[in-house]
């Protein structure tokens, strides 16, 4: 096959992929190529942008107000408050477990959420399998993190990142298997916490080898004033 034929083949394949007409196994193969073949990824991106303009042919229709109300309820309704409520019991259970294990020797400081956090964040994975609650203790310069749901699979680690404004993510370390932990926030980061985004990514055991997230971002959430 000549180079030109090969790239024609890829052009058509990328278009078929974006249209969604490929048989499942070919679609999977194309999807895998996007991650490893930047030229193919660029072809896919071109088709996505070009074909999206076909949506201009469709007449806009104002949705009824109940759709927005239901969306808001789903995202910010009672579930949100209920959700925060589990973090304290999780931490308490962890503290009790630690106290039992280490009693009567000096109990190590089991992670406890700050009584008056300056900032809080909620991180929920899209599939809902992983949820984290974070609370920042301004006095101690520490971030309390409670996790519920999926732990990292064997040989993988969950790494916590903080992204302040347009800066590159800064690692806050790999999350332990414990349901609650406390991590130090470097002094130079403390001034930029308002509105900063916390993220958890899937990394090789021991954490990202590059200092930047290398695996899928599993959950994100912004720090907001508590």
């Amino acid at each position: 096959m000549t180079g030109a034929e090969k790239s024609d083949d890829d052009r058509a394949l990328a278009g078929e992929y974006v249209l969604g007409v490929l048989p499942p196994e070919e679609a999977r193969a194309a999807s895998a190529r996007i991650a490893t073949d930047p030229e193919f990824a660029a072809l896919v991106a071109e088709w996505r942008a070009d074909l999206a303009t076909l949506a201009d042919e469709v007449e806009p229709v104002a949705p009824p107000a109940r759709v927005w109300r239901a969306t808001e309820r789903r995202l910010f309704g009672r579930a949100r408050r209920r959700w925060w409520a589990w973090a304290a019991p999780v931490a308490l259970a962890a503290a009790l477990a630690a106290a039992v294990v280490f009693w009567p020797s000096f109990a190590p400081r089991a992670p406890v959420p700050p009584a008056a956090p300056a900032y809080r964040a909620e991180l929920v994975a899209q599939d809902g399998d992983l949820r984290l609650a974070a609370a920042y203790d301004a006095e101690a310069g520490t971030l309390f993190v409670a996790r519920e749901g999926a732990a990292a699979p064997v040989g993988r680690a969950l790494e916590l990142w903080i992204i302040a404004g347009d800066d590159a993510p800064v690692s806050l370390g790999v999350l332990p298997d414990d349901p609650a932990t406390v991590v130090m926030v470097a002094p130079e980061l403390r001034a930029a916490l308002d509105g900063a985004v916390l993220a958890v990514s899937d990394e090789p055991a021991g954490g990202s080898p590059t200092g930047q997230p290398t695996g899928a971002v599993l959950a994100t959430g912004a720090l907001t004033e508590a």
Partner: peptide, 9 residues
Amino acid sequence: SAKLFGLAL
């Protein structure tokens, strides 16, 4: 939302 609703419809 009107654009995306038209498309979903």
